[in-house]
Write a protein that binds this DNA or RNA. Sequence first.
DNA 1: TTGCCCATGTTAAACGTTTAACATACCTTA
DNA 2: TAAGGTATGTTAAACGTTTAACATGGGCAA
Lengths: 337, 337
Amino acid sequence: MKDIAAHLGVSIAVVSYVMSGKKGRVSSEMEAKINKAAKELGYQPNLIARSLKSGKTSTLGLIVADISNPFFAHIARIIEDTAKQHGYTVIFGSSDESVEKSQDLIDTFLNRQVDGLIIAPPAGTEAQVKMLQKKKMPFVLIDRYFPDIPTDNIRIDNFGAGYAAADCLLKSGRRSIALISYRSGMEHIKERERGYRQALIDHGVAPQDEWQIKASYQRLESEVREGLARLQPGVGVDAILFSTNSLAIEGLKQLNRMGLRIPDDLGVVSFDESDAFDLFYVPITHIRQSLPDMGMEAVGLLLRHIKDKKHKTEEIVVGSDLVSGASCGAVATKMVG
Amino acid sequence: MKDIAAHLGVSIAVVSYVMSGKKGRVSSEMEAKINKAAKELGYQPNLIARSLKSGKTSTLGLIVADISNPFFAHIARIIEDTAKQHGYTVIFGSSDESVEKSQDLIDTFLNRQVDGLIIAPPAGTEAQVKMLQKKKMPFVLIDRYFPDIPTDNIRIDNFGAGYAAADCLLKSGRRSIALISYRSGMEHIKERERGYRQALIDHGVAPQDEWQIKASYQRLESEVREGLARLQPGVGVDAILFSTNSLAIEGLKQLNRMGLRIPDDLGVVSFDESDAFDLFYVPITHIRQSLPDMGMEAVGLLLRHIKDKKHKTEEIVVGSDLVSGASCGAVATKMVG
DNA sequence: TTGCCCATGTTAAACGTTTAACATACCTTA
DNA sequence: TAAGGTATGTTAAACGTTTAACATGGGCAA
């Protein structure tokens, strides 16, 4: 801008007026001259300076458990696109379900003056969420949420989805159904568990504690292995419900290794999507969450909150549906394609 | 900082000196007082202001074809981690293999004053790359590269990998081997094609033009379908080599639909990794690129280039290997696990 | 005692924008 | 013709840092 002003022998202010598109502030001849000079000199605005002045960065921070997990990668893509449509750029970080990394990322993003945050919060980060609220930093939670802390959040009907998943297995005649989930105790997982239990009860099956296997994010492989050993699938239980895609992928690998056939020896249903579910020798029935809706709603809600700081908190439930493969068991009737 | 200075009745400068860790510039009592006040008042540095002054943002821009593609999502994760270790944050964007979107992202990132860029460039973006060079903006290319433009870049030995992939099929007794790849004409794909052809020739098989199917990124499904129809797999060709994971996923879905059995009716090898390859009814033999190396080297090289603008360009070839499944055809001898 | 140096703190300019407040000249209108 | 309005440009302060240059006072050597 300085160069343009000097080149034309005018003040920096008038250049700024035309560059920032203020109408009616400068004559049209001057505007033309300045635009011409700007093009010639290849002017590009310095967004950092702009941000410093305006206090806005047009940047959103995205914190997920792991960007390389297809579930989050897919959401990230939607968020990126939606944010761009509104002139925002996204910076991201992976928390690995760690409280410390999450705090670290939040601090980093705050220091970088992001305008808002989209977070899939790890278990145990209630304090971080409250801190954001105290600082009046706009944010929305996705996928997970804290029932005791009212916040903007986007999620599916986890109870209903858990119910539908178990229901599918029960309707196929399965009676002893295991649930493999994360140990974290996050509410969305608990809801899925509740849905699963209710479905069992509604079908006259008493849920057994030993059917519920918990694995930790950090030691997925070994704990899934131990869990499966305890379950004795095919003998002890006749079906398994996985509450996330990563659990299912790991579980299916091990079931393959154990030589179990699905759905003959064992019925299987999972949450989330994966190319592997579609291409498995029997397509895996799974709960599909509407990731486009989740991402778009998250950005939309966040931007509304950024623009109107007094915005009351909203909880948005987006769609999910059961995609029928043949892994439940009733091959003939369930196959969809 | 202003608050701290006022609170202590000192100048802003001395606060700045201790906050930015300048040693020997301020007495230790003063330093202690200021640190205490900073903690009490919850001071957090404004990185935007810092950046404006220093001209450095400690931010890297990452441009990939699609962050929701597991290949790029995985690289993104490595890059994120490596960048964080060095105090850098990553902003990302997906080009969808579009020249315009790529230009758009580059412009956005430059305006945001990123310190450097990591780019998987779409076909036809030579001019963009040259523009970056003219502006002396540090960047490194990953996965793809332009043979006519010397740039920092990280890639695998695409010729060797293509050769190894085809070799595996040939050694299993396949003679008519199709290659399905992207139409883009990017050098890394061409190299894979050259490797494939050379392997055929070395095994005394004359490559047929009609064995080479090209699909465009934007119309993947229909063009793969048409390509497969022309190939008549199982009749016209006895094996298919896919040059990327997305092509393979799409292709395998359609082969399933066509009722073809692998490896009995058709041998298959793919590039890249996927959970679906491991969990397919027969594990898919594939070329695994060392993503950790690619990501870490990319960040390392970029930071070297940022620190030393006179750094001469480097081309780094990272490892790749053939992960044997049973999809080549020689089930008995090839199975690995 | 004088003169210097050193340690420590302050002042002010700068980074690239934005924008309120001011200045100027011209045009109306009565 | 005078008063007021309008159109257009300039000045300068501000955003939150950093840092060169300057100021001050005390300690030390000769």
